[in-house]
Amino acid sequence: MLSKYRTYISILIKVNTVSGFDKVVTSYAQALEGLEDNMTVVAGGFGLCGIPENLIKEIKRKGTKGLTIASNNAGVDGAGLGLLLQDKQIKKMIASYVGENALFEKQMMSGELEVELTPQGTLAEKMRAGGAGIPAFYTATGYGTPVGEGKEVREFNGRHYILEEAIVGDFSIAKAWKADRYGNLIFRKTARNFNPMAITAGKISVVEVEEIVEVGELDPDEIHLPGIYVNRLILGTFEKTIEQRTVRSA
């Protein structure tokens, strides 16, 4: 317990001692410093698109265990969050869709892995709410289904809604396309997906990007997510695995 407390203090010092608003860290070990067993991690990405692939690999390298991970998907066998299943690092998965992953299925069936299936829009909103200081919200999604079981139901204007609670992570891991050193972010195409909300929902948010530019180089009007939400920023190189390569003939 004391050691955990110390870690939190050191994380705070760490974040506060980065010079001014400069969020850039230079190693993945530094990027995930303070991530410990049994923590909750909120992750960006949709399928393998826009996933923080190097941060996931760093969690695998660190060997952090007992993690609760909130992410739309759980990767595939051998890629994305699927990597963390190999050494059983995930205790609980909060996701909307977990197909495409044999190891996941096996661990779920054997009871080693707890799964909380959450509708995609509800998951996005849980993260958004978590980052926006809203503890819970009502939604019609899932009313009268297994998702609504045990949840408060309220009627507004003749329709039924269930109460869904926000998600806040100890850490969030995400990927953006371009950033300035202050952590102002621009995403690219559909790689944006869950990333902006995931970033806001982490007590410590870590973002990896393809390019970091100097402050002042990004047009403030074009910034998708302001740097206030970003604690640590790291430059990465990405494999960008494609799950379903569908093409037409030219």
């Binding site: 393998l48 698109c49 829009g121 909103e125 958004r128 995403f187 195409k189 559909t190 379903q244 569908t246």
Partner: peptide, 24 residues
């Protein structure tokens, strides 16, 4: 483009006048 997929995770393109946004 690996950064441009549909909800079935298939690679797609955009039409003129398309827009991009977050899951929320």
């Amino acid at each position: 483009d690996a950064d441009l997929i549909n909800a079935g995770k298939q690679t797609v393109t955009m039409v003129k006048g398309a827009s991009l946004f977050s899951s929320a």
